[in-house]
Design a binder for these strands. Structure first.
Length: 276
DNA sequence: AGACAGGGGAGTG
DNA sequence: CACTCCCCTGTC
C-alpha cells in the first residue's frame, strides 16, 4: 500500500457523485475499475492510501495537482452555491478516459446510476479482460473497436442504446477522441453530438468528465430541478437549453464544477428527505 | 412538444 | 405467483 498527501480533497464525495460507475466499496475503501486498471483507494484524513496504480496515475486521475481551494473560491458567486460547497467540500472532477466516459454516458440516457452500472459492468464482462487485485476480480473496459457484436451488446441489457454503442464502437478510436482535446469546448461538443445517442446533456458529461472542459454544464433532471428552485423562482416555464445558457453565463468561472456541487447537493438533500 | 425506449419495482388479482 | 402499470430520463 502506498500513500500520497492530499489537500482540499474528499474521496467519498468525489466517488459518489455519479461521474463514475465501476466502484466497489470494500475494506474501508473503494476498488475502482478505470479503463484497463483495477486499483484500491482509501482516505485517511489528509492522505490517500492506494494500491494497484502508481503515484503519477493517482495525481492525474484525482486531479491532485489542481488548486481546489482557488477553484472553489472562483465559483463561490452567491450564498446558494456556497451552501452546497460547504457541505461537500473537496469533491473533485476526475480525469477519466474519454472512450470509457463516452460509453458510460451513452448508457446513461433514460437510465439511473444502478442501471448504468449494470450496463457497463456487463459490457466489460463480455468484451473486457479479467483483472484481479487482492481478493477482488473485475474486467477491463472494452477497447474501442472490440464491441463488434450487436447481439452481445443487447445482451448487456442496453436496450435501445445498443445501436448507439455499436456505432460508437465502429466510428470512434482513441486517436479520434484525443483529437477533441485540441478543439475549443463548443467545437468539441458539436463533434460529439454528431454521434447517435449523444445529445447536449450526454456530450456535456463526456466533455466535463472525460476531457476536463469546465465550461460544460450538463443539464439533467436534477440540475433542472435545482436550478428552477434556486434561480428561476419567478419564471413559469424554462427549458433545459435556457438553464444551460444561464448556468454557463452565471457560473462563468467553472460552470462544470458548480454543476457538480449543485447536482450532489440536491440529490443528497432529496434523498435525506425521503423523497425519490 | 410529445413519443419513445428497457428494466425495475410497486401494486393488484 | 403472474400480471399490469408506472416510473425513471434523455434522445429523437
Amino acid at each position: 500500500m502506498q500513500k500520497i498527501q492530499i489537500k482540499d480533497f474528499n474521496l467519498q464525495h468525489t466517488l459518489e457523485s455519479a461521474q463514475l460507475f465501476r466502484i466497489l466499496k470494500k475494506n474501508n475503501g473503494y476498488y475502482i475499475t478505470a479503463r484497463d486498471k483495477l486499483f484500491f483507494v482509501q482516505q485517511q484524513e489528509d492522505q490517500l492510501l492506494y494500491d494497484g496504480v502508481d503515484e503519477q496515475f493517482m495525481i492525474d486521475y484525482f486531479a491532485l495537482d489542481e488548486d481546489h481551494a482557488q477553484l472553489v473560491l472562483a465559483i463561490s458567486v452567491d450564498e446558494k452555491i456556497k451552501t452546497a460547497i460547504k457541505q461537500y467540500y473537496g469533491m473533485r472532477i476526475l480525469r477519466q478516459d474519454p472512450w470509457e466516459t463516452t460509453v458510460n454516458f451513452i448508457c446513461s440516457a433514460a437510465a439511473n446510476v444502478p442501471k448504468i452500472t449494470m450496463n457497463v459492468n456487463l459490457l466489460a464482462e463480455r468484451f473486457g479482460k479479467k483483472i484481479t487485485l487482492h481478493d477482488v476480480t473485475s474486467y477491463t473496459f472494452p477497447e474501442p473497436g472490440t464491441m463488434q457484436d450487436l447481439a452481445i451488446i443487447k445482451d448487456c441489457k442496453t436496450g435501445f442504446r445498443a445501436e448507439y454503442l455499436f456505432a460508437a464502437n465502429t466510428m470512434l478510436t482513441d486517436q479520434k477522441l484525443a483529437h477533441l482535446r485540441n478543439l475549443c469546448y463548443s467545437d468539441a461538443k458539436r463533434e460529439l453530438i454528431k454521434n447517435a445517442g449523444i445529445g447536449s446533456k450526454v456530450a456535456d458529461c463526456i466533455l466535463l468528465f472525460g476531457y476536463g472542459f469546465k465550461e460544460a454544464f450538463p443539464v439533467d433532471t436534477w440540475i433542472a430541478k435545482v436550478m428552477k428552485e434556486l434561480y428561476f423562482t419567478k419564471k413559469r416555464k424554462v427549458n433545459n437549453q435556457q438553464i444551460l445558457a444561464f448556468g454557463q453565463k452565471y457560473f462563468k468561472a467553472h460552470p462544470g464544477y458548480t454543476q457538480m456541487y449543485l447536482f450532489h447537493w440536491i440529490r443528497m438533500r432529496d434523498k435525506n428527505n425521503g423523497k425519490n
